[in-house]
Design a protein around this nucleic acid. Structure first.
Length: 741
DNA sequence: ATCGCGCAAATTTTT
DNA sequence: TTTGCGCGAT
């Protein structure tokens, strides 16, 4: 395999420059993933580096998965041993192993924003603080900001000095951490911060990882925050083979603590760093790229860089204005329908991008009416649904006995006649005795004033205890079945017999399928599936991670979610001052905020390969109120000669779309029933396998082997392979992803 | 203990 | 427009 085929000199140089710090400034569409994957292959094949001493960190699980697949294609074997992961998943993996060294239990829970909010409410109550002046939202934002800077409560307090307001927040922060710890739980930011703490406090653990991970690569480096930088510096501290890839023009996560200084001053921190720029764009037409360049040139303080392309000039960038959001959505939908009808593209080539999730509704509605398949990314996550969170809370309760939040969520779900007063009494008792909520439940008979509720509490405790015992030998799926069976959760929904309840049952079925998928995948990798493992995985999936490329659908998502993706046809909707750039960015006094919006615009434009359409409207409904906005200033920053304003507005013939006689919700329901065909979630059994008995095949982790048997089962083929290195293994075809060599 | 009504508040972006 | 919460009734 020629690793350099079709690579430009800079890309080649980046692949070959393996020792010491390297900063790769890679513009949009400049083939950085290609460079990274080839670099990994080069390290293994030409430098004899062991696959397991290479770590690549990406921003999303989707990106990680893609990178794994691409490395796998380049290599004969060993690709499975390269550690490709997101920051958060990597940290979970490290902490599940060693967090007991810093005083937590390795079966810790991971608290998502919803859980954080609940916990924060408790914290504010404990501290007796007025929730009107101290909003949990802003408290959590402050704490998150601190954690992203690796500031612990002590440091926070000392930084507060004499400032009264800040000292108060420090108090909240301290109590919040205390309660997290009592629950043996970590929030997202803790995952990073505690890993750093672990490395600092336990040099032997750090040393072990340093010795193992000798080559480290970080993708989307412009979006790393201070803790992430610290983490990477620690890991790479010994061998200093650190390659970071980023583009300061695509830094769009400052609000989440991303520190653009990480990239701007990389050369100061690593004075011997080599800098390579990738400036040739392979993705977009000249017109699109120039439009992007035009916009981003209005930002100050950028790294010197000019993106160019050899691609054709292409069509001009379309800009269309409409009266209301209704017509905007109609136009975009109609345009997609037309393009597909004329055979110019497929649905999957089209993406509608917008600034806020709330804007998705109108597009959903129109696409639904036009019968165009779509996938909505983001907004309400699958795992944010009530029924799913209830079931997850059961699993958390079983896995982590200290997780009071989980216990309290499910203690009366489904209704067991245990009400607020009883729960408060138990909580008080726990507080007095300095024990956990669940422990307090166990000794409920010693709590005065529990009265008649005692029997109910005891039977609940017994139920959980039984589950914990059974969990020792049941699979995750079996455990979940038992929970559903014994609680009567689904049965209750069935009796409700409403559309809503039916939807919930569907979600639960989907959830169970996800459990099964998780278990099968783990088994295919010869790893033990566990409740804790499943919970970690679930906590860290973003909606974008679950977008399958093999479905032919239009994608709807925010500009943020679109980072790292590309489409032939991109529609950027809501190009209005106050929407994009957001009202906050315009009115705020920080010019940085506006620049970040501009970078976001740059990211959006550079997603497009062939066609870019920007739209704006005169009046827009925002939470019930009509707003009148001016055309986005970003439109004016695109060189005029690159823009096509379309025929005059009245020449745009409005086509009549028949009004549906069904409600939006109902249509959505129907669409869901059609789109979420069960086949999509169960593993599809291949019609036939592309290998047979006697063939030599390759497995990501086990390497090369010979197929000795194939048994056809109901759901899938069970394949037996005799591997050169690890011996005979049995596996399911759909998960093992064996490739004939 | 549970249900339901009515009023208030909220929306930037996410691992 | 949608969601969340508090209070009163059963």
């Amino acid at each position: 395999m020629n690793l350099y085929e079709g690579m430009n000199p800079e890309q080649q140089e980046a692949v070959e420059y393996t020792e010491g710090p390297l900063l790769l400034l890679a513009g949009a569409g400049s083939g950085k993933t290609r460079v990274l994957t080839h670099r990994i292959a080069y390290l293994i094949e030409h430098k004899g580096v062991a696959p397991w001493s290479i770590m690549a960190i990406t921003f999303t699980n989707k990106a990680a998965q893609e990178m794994r697949e691409r490395v796998d294609k380049l290599l004969e074997y060993g690709a499975g041993s390269v550690w490709v992961s997101t920051f958060h998943s990597a940290c979970v993996r490290i902490l599940r192993r060693y967090i007991d060294r810093i005083g937590y239990n390795t079966n810790f829970s991971i608290y998502k924003p919803d859980d954080q909010k609940t916990l924060m409410k408790d914290v504010l109550k404990t501290l007796d603080m007025d929730p009107k002046t101290y909003k949990e939202r802003s408290m959590l934002a402050e704490i998150s900001r601190a954690k992203n800077e690796n500031i612990d409560p002590d440091l926070f307090e000392s930084q507060a000095g004499g400032e009264w307001a800040k000292r108060r927040i420090a108090e909240v922060y301290r109590e919040y951490q205390k309660q997290l710890k009592q629950n043996n739980a970590l929030d997202f930011d803790d995952l990073l911060m505690k890993t750093v703490e672990l490395f600092v406090k336990c040099p032997d653990v750090l040393d072990m990882y340093q010795e193992r991970l000798r080559y480290i690569m970080v993708d989307e480096y412009q979006d790393t925050n201070t803790v992430q930088f610290k983490l990477v510096s620690l890991l790479a501290g010994k061998y200093r083979n650190l390659c970071v890839v980023g583009d300061d023009d695509q830094s769009i996560y400052k609000f989440r603590g991303a520190n653009i200084q990480n990239i701007l001053s990389f050369e100061k921190v690593f004075p011997d760093a080599k800098v390579i720029k990738l400036e040739q764009n392979y993705r977009s037409t000249k017109n699109i790229l120039n439009a992007a360049n035009g916009v981003i040139s209005h930002n100050a303080g950028r790294k010197e860089k000019s993106l160019w392309t050899e691609n054709e000039e292409g069509a001009k960038v379309d800009f269309r204005q409409f009266f209301s959001g209704f017509e905007e959505a109609e136009y975009i939908t109609g345009d997609i329908a037309r393009q597909v009808r004329e055979g110019k593209c497929s649905y999957r080539d089209c993406a509608v991008l917008y600034r806020t999730n709330a804007q998705s509704r109108l597009f959903e509605e129109k696409l639904l009416m036009a019968n165009i398949p779509y996938r909505l990314v983001g907004g309400i996550n699958f795992y944010d649904r009530k029924e799913i969170n209830d079931l997850l809370a059961y699993l958390k309760t079983v896995a982590n006995p200290s997780d009071d939040l989980a216990v309290r969520r499910i203690i009366n779900v489904p209704k067991r006649g245990i009400g607020a007063t009883t729960i408060n009494r138990v909580a008080e008792h726990a507080q007095e005795q300095g024990i956990g909520f669940f422990d307090a439940l166990c000794e409920a008979r010693h709590i005065p004033a529990i009265g008649r509720s005692l029997a109910k509490l005891e039977s609940f405790v017994e139920f959980i205890e039984v589950l914990r015992t059974r969990a020792e030998y049941l699979s995750v799926k079996e455990l979940m079945d038992e929970i559903i069976e014994k609680t009567g959760y689904v049965k209750e929904l069935e009796e409700e017999d409403t559309d809503e309840a039916r939807g919930r049952i569907e979600n639960i079925d989907e959830f169970i399928t996800k459990i099964v998928t998780y278990e099968e995948e783990k088994k295919a990798l010869e790893e033990e599936p566990t409740v804790g493992g499943f919970l970690s995985e679930v906590a860290l999936v973003a909606d974008i991670d679950t977008v399958e490329s093999d479905n032919d659908r239009v994608l709807l998502m925010t500009l943020h979610s679109a980072k790292g993706l590309e489409f032939s046809n991109v529609y950027m909707a809501g190009m209005e001052d106050g929407i994009f750039p957001s009202y906050m960015a315009i009115t705020g006094d920080d010019s940085d905020d506006l620049e970040e919006e501009r970078r976001l615009c740059y990211v959006g434009i550079t997603r497009a390969m062939k066609h870019l359409t920007l739209t704006a409207v005169q009046q827009r409904m925002i939470r019930g109120e009509t707003q009148y906005n001016k055309v986005s200033r970003f439109i004016r920053e695109i060189p005029r000669e690159l823009v096509d304003l379309g025929r005059s507005a009245d020449a745009e013939k409005k086509r009549d779309i028949p009004l549906p006689n069904t409600s939006f919700m109902q249509m959505k329901q129907n669409f869901k029933a059609r789109a979420l065909d069960p086949r999509q979630f169960t593993v599809k059994k291949a019609d036939k396998l592309d290998y047979e008995v006697g063939d030599t095949v390759r497995h990501v982790k086990f390497g090369v082997g010979i197929v000795t048997a194939i048994v056809e089962g109901g759901k899938d083929y069970e394949v037996t392979v005799d591997f050169d290195r690890v011996g005979v293994k049995k596996m399911f075809a759909a998960f093992a992803k064996l490739k004939k060599v």
